[in-house]
Structure formats: C-alpha cells, structure tokens
Design a binder for these strands. Structure first.
Length: 426
RNA sequence: AGAGAGGUGGCCGAGCGGCUGAAGGCGCACGCUUGGAAAGCGUGUAUACUCUUUACGGGGUAUCGAGGGUUCGAAUCCCUUCCUCUCUGCCA
C-alpha cells in the first residue's frame, strides 16, 4: 500500500503514475487521502489530550485515597467519567477514520516506475529482448501439446476431471518425471545463485494474504477454506514474503534471498476459453519462485539480477524467448514494474508467459510492516521483489512442442541428468 | 476431538488493581580497564502515532497474543477469540 508520507512528498509523481494506470481522477483521489490523514491526525491529537488529562486525574485520585481525602477524590471521579465519554466518542471516530483511510489505501495500486510504458493492453507491452533464432521448423506434422500428451500418455486431463475437476491434470510416467526433474533443476539453479531454499506451507491465513496484496483485491482468485478461514496459495510469493511480516531486519543481514517450490492454486474464475487449452491455464500448477528483500537503493539493480537469472534458466532449456516490460495497464496491482518472460511454443505458434519478475518497492513492505534498521538506528521500509523461476506447465508445453519428432520428443540436454531419460517415447 | 496449563521486552523471567513501558538475569552496543583478550565496572538497549526542536534532544498517547467489558485507574478482574504446551483420542 502507498504511504501517506510518499503522497505528501511526491504528489506529482504519484498522480502521474496513477493516471498512467488509467485512474483519471487521481488528483482528487490523492487529495482526498491527504485530507483524511489530516483529519486522522487532529482526532488523534484531541484524543491524546483527553487521555493525558484522564491519566493525570487517575493518578491524583490514587494519592487522594491514600491520604483519606474522599470528597476531593469523588469530585475528580466525576470529571474523569465525563472525560471517558468524550474519549470514547473520539476514539470511535478515530478508528472509523483510520479504517477508511486504510481501506482507501488498500484500493490504490502501486505507482508505476518511470520506465513503465503507457498502455492498456498486451499490445502495449514493450519487447525488451527477443531471442527467437531457435524456433524450430516443424513442418506439416507439428502438433500442439494437448495432442502430444495424449499420444505419449504423459499428462491426463480426463483423469483429473474425474478425480477433481477441470484444470487439475494428472502427470503420468515420463510426464510426472519431467515435472519432478524441472522442479529439481530450477531449485538447483536458484541455490547456485545464492537463494536460500525454503519449503513453505501452501495454505495461508488472511493476514498473509493482506500482507502481499492478494487481499482484499483479488479475493476471488484464491481458493478459500471456510472452516478455518485459510486460503490456498496462488504463488509461493505469499508464504515466503510473509516470513518477513512485522519484522525489522538489520541492514547488514540484507539482501535476503529465498527460493521455494510449491504447487500454486488459482481459481481463474471466468477466464476460460478456447485460447487456454491444455497446459496454458490450470487451477493447480507447479512453480519455483525467487524472492528478495533488499535495501531501497539497490532494488533496481537486484531486479536486473533477477531478470538475468530467469533469462539464464530459460536459455539453458534451449527455448526461444522474449522479455517484455509490462505497460501500466497490464501491470499487477502491487507492482511498480514487471518484466514478463514468454517462451515460443511452436506447436501452437504462440508466445506463452512463463515468468513474471517484479519490483514492489515499498508497496508490500508497507503492508507487511517490513522494515530495515540502518546503521544509524533509523528505520526505513524495505523493498521486496519476486519472480517465477519458473512456472512449469507452459515450459512443459514449449519443451514438448518445440522438440517433437515423428516418434519421440527430445529432452533438453541440461535436463537429462535430472530425468533419467533423453527423450519421451511411446 | 475431550481435559488441563499458559501466552509479559531480542531471549529467560518477576509482577496478579494505582508508585510498572514494565524488577532481575542473559544477550547486544558503547565506554573504562588490559600489552591483547577474558573477567570486572559504568552507560545504554521496544514499537507505532503525534507535538516540539535548525539539530542533539524533549514532551504526549497507545501497546504485556488479539478484541471487547468492569473500574476514577487494568499486564493484573470478567467475557469473546486466536495461538502454544501437557495428558487422552485419532492419525502420516
């Protein structure tokens, strides 16, 4: 969530940033917030004064009682009772104001970074890099992965339908081993790059959802468990980043780098259709996530490092890819800047998003109350970043489609030690 | 799931209606001491909001799991809720 102090100091930047996101009334919105905050402050001040007086009276009464001066004490009691009524009222309106302010802030997205292109749709995303020299020539008998997986019997949607429902496939045989191999490979790469591995819970509470910004904004995208008011994670970002909720980190313990593998669950309500066949969109999928908590002044350098790491992994699989800088309209709610990675899947002749690397600046940290204690004792909000490294299903789709031959699918060289086979055969 | 115990500062732990933002200890930081280290001694050591100050700093309020209540006054009493531990049950 945005900080009121940032809005005060950097009004114009905030206004322009939000306008870039298509919020036309940004100026009045921000002014409204500032006014609410002013209101909050004055209420707080009045309340504090009354409480201060109450505390003084209570102390006096204590002393008077000890001295046996009942009458004087009784007079003070009356005043105190009166003050209490006043303070109750003030406290109520203070809490209302604070709640409104908070809710208001929750509903304002992050201010995009300067370099984020203007735009509303995917078309406006900026292609930063494209590496398409290795797009295969498949000729006339190329197949999309949903045909390949049936032909080789490695992923079974029907079985998933039976046991759970649409979007929950079974991976079988070499398909299951491919998933396991990829997860291991991705985790090994992350470890090599200095990310400390964690295996987080895949169910989170409400506070965690709010901390990273899934709640209250994207409530409908998560599976909810009513009995215990818990949510299935949509990404490992949530449990991993929330390790640092309500934490003050020493400056010298930064950067914090974590990697973790989890299944991810997304309801994807209403976003189904012909263009999301097969592995392109699922309710449950596997992903290795990388997360960093860093000093504000280093976060853009770190972002570049994370992009470079993801690029290295994608490249090592021999997949054609491109890197996009998302336009303001396509940018996630909590992100200041996001780079998407897409791989080209030659069977469908489509670019598929396989990773999203974002800098949230202080937006998440402010919600999380994640701060850094500097050498001089001053505290500042940390910057948080994360990226997929990588999400599996579309990587699998691209591997299958791009490496298909008439009677086998060759596996990328680098994966073979992880798989125990060189190609998928019938 | 049933019965009981408990949640206090970075940690341990006292307090069980006013003098407690909180004893004592440990840890940590700085200083003294030392040839150096240890020990010893001294000082300091939560967070948020807010007022004030050029700054150093100073003041106010809140916070003893969370929320509500009783009271002039609550870490201390009552209620609700969450969590932890022990025993019983169940179970990978």
């Amino acid at each position: 969530m945005l900080q009121v102090s940032t809005i005060e100091k950097d009004f114009e930047r905030c206004q322009k940033g939000l306008e870039k996101r298509g919020i036309k009334e940004a100026e009045s919105l921000l002014n409204d917030l500032l006014n609410k905050d002013k209101n909050r402050k004055s209420l707080q001040q009045n309340l504090d004064q009354i409480l201060s007086r109450s505390n003084a009276i209570a102390k006096e009464i204590g002393i008077l009682f000890k001295e046996g001066k009942r009458d004087e004490a009784d007079a003070l009691k009356k005043e105190s009772t009166q003050l209490k009524e006043e303070s109750k009222k003030l406290n109520d309106s203070l809490q209302t104001t604070e709640r409104e302010l908070r809710e208001h802030l929750y509903n304002i997205p992050n201010v995009p970074h300067e370099s984020v292109p203007v735009g509303n749709t995917e078309e406006d995303n900026e292609v930063v890099k494209i590496e398409d020299s290795n797009i295969p020539e498949l000729g006339s008998n190329k197949k999309p992965h949903w045909e390949l997986i049936e032909a080789y019997d490695i992923i079974d949607f029907e079985l998933g339908n039976k046991v759970t429902g649409a979007g929950f496939p079974f991976y079988k045989g070499q398909g299951a081993r491919l998933v396991r191999g990829l997860v291991n490979y991705f985790l090994d790469k992350a470890n090599e790059a200095g990310y400390h591995e964690v295996q987080p819970p895949i169910v989170i509470n409400e506070a965690s959802g709010i901390g990273t910004g899934q709640l209250p904004d994207k409530e409908g995208q998560m599976y909810h468990i009513d009995e215990t008011n818990l949510y299935l994670i949509p990404t490992a970002e949530v449990p991993i980043t929330n390790i640092y909720r309500d934490v003050i980190l020493n400056e010298n313990s930064l950067p914090v780098k974590h990697a973790g593998y989890t299944p991810c669950f997304r309801r994807e309500a209403g976003s189904w259709g012909a263009h999301v066949r097969g592995l392109n969109r699922l309710h449950q999928f596997d992903k290795v996530e990388i997360v960093q908590v860093v000093k504000p002044e280093t976060s853009y350098e770190v972002l570049d490092n994370m992009v470079a790491h993801v690029e290295e992994v994608v490249k090592s699989l021999g997949l054609p890819y491109r890197i996009l800088r998302l336009c303001a309209g396509d940018l996630g709610f909590t992100s200041a800047i996001t780079y998407d990675f897409e791989v080209f899947s030659a069977g469908q002749e489509k670019w598929l998003e396989v990773s999203s690397v974002s800098n949230f600046e202080t937006y998440q940290a402010n919600r999380l109350k994640l701060r850094i204690k500097k050498e001089d004792g001053k505290k500042v909000l940390a910057h948080t970043l994360n990226g997929s490294a990588l999400a599996l299903p579309r990587i699998i789709a691209a591997i299958l489609e791009n490496n298909q031959e008439s009677n086998q699918i060759r596996m990328p060289e680098i994966l073979r030690p992880y798989l125990g086979f060189d190609s998928i055969k019938r």
